[in-house]
């Protein structure tokens, strides 16, 4: 029983990081209709640069905040490459993000080396109902909850957030009222970068992150995002938590190497199921 609870707790913690990666996918896809294949790399940038800043003596919180900011800047740069030229076809943008994602390996190895890195998050553990729960789990869950609350406020209550939603709802009308949809796309890429960076910063104390950790993160994040047709952050959160827990259970009761298979199988099943109802990746949301 306590073993099950332990798996659940660790599943929810990793699920939270998947959720942040997934919302990054959603934030960018909603506005630009581009599936950003570099999304996993944002998390790697966040995690590895937080490690580098901490080892240069920067205090916690500041190092993590700077790492998230750096990931946002990287997101903006990827956005400039992918959609900066007006009228770039969506498929071309998608391939550009794929290219940047692969090219990022070279840059990441040059900047941070080719070894996995990890740093200590908040130390210690709490005993809850007979289960030892690392404090880092609680931190991850709390930060993720705060990030989702902030996103909901941003998208629903602020004018910029409504404009981003407008670009998703009807790009032609958005241009008609004078919204620069390309610029909004760049905003969404920066936001996606920050969300990915936050995921990396939270994940690195839980499991070491290397230059090529992006693939696993992107697969899990994308599988979670597909739950909501890559359009709804709330559904992506639910998807990510289900995925995180399912993987923790598979790793715990079966073999750890089967873990990543869960995401792939679930993603395929979901996409096939959704495609039979409506296109999983809708061409437009009109």
């Amino acid at each position: 029983m306590s073993l099950l609870l332990q798996y659940l707790a660790s599943g929810i913690a990793t699920g939270c990081t998947f959720a942040l990666v997934a919302t990054g996918f959603v934030a960018i896809y909603r506005v630009t209709r581009v599936v950003n294949f570099a999304q996993g790399a944002f998390a790697v940038v966040g995690g590895m640069s937080a490690f580098a800043l901490l080892s240069h003596g920067l205090p916690h919180v500041l190092a993590e905040a700077l790492a998230v900011l750096l990931a946002a800047v990287v997101g903006l740069l990827v956005g400039l490459g992918a959609i900066g030229r007006r009228g770039t076809p969506v498929l071309a943008s998608l391939i550009i993000t794929l290219g940047i994602g692969i090219g990022s390996y070279a840059v990441l190895i040059l900047a941070f080396g080719d070894q996995p890195v990890s740093f200590d998050g908040v130390g210690g553990a709490l005993a809850v109902a007979g289960v030892t729960m690392p404090r880092q789990f609680l931190l991850v869950a709390a930060v993720t909850a705060a990030a989702f609350a902030a996103l909901a406020l941003f998208f629903n209550r602020t004018y910029l957030g409504r404009a981003l939603t407008a670009c998703s709802s009807n790009p032609h009308a958005a241009r008609l009222v004078g919204i620069d949809t390309t610029r909004m796309g760049l905003v969404s890429f920066a936001l996606g970068g920050a969300l990915g960076g936050l995921a990396g910063v939270l994940l690195t104390p839980l499991q070491p992150v290397a230059f090529n950790s992006d693939v696993g993160l992107a697969i899990n994040g994308f599988a979670a995002a597909v739950f909501g047709g890559i359009l709804r952050p709330g559904t992506a959160l639910v998807g990510a938590l289900v995925l995180g827990v399912a993987e923790a259970l598979v790793a715990g009761y079966s073999r750890a190497s089967f873990q990543s298979g869960v995401a792939l199988v679930l993603m395929l099943a979901l996409m096939v199921w959704q495609a039979s109802r409506r296109p999983a990746i809708a061409e437009d949301a009109a």
Partner: peptide
């Protein structure tokens, strides 16, 4: 019309 169909009337106006 080309409205923002899934947004409120007021949001549509404010975005104008």
């Amino acid at each position: 019309r080309q409205l923002f169909a899934d947004m409120s009337v007021e949001d549509n106006l404010r975005l104008g």
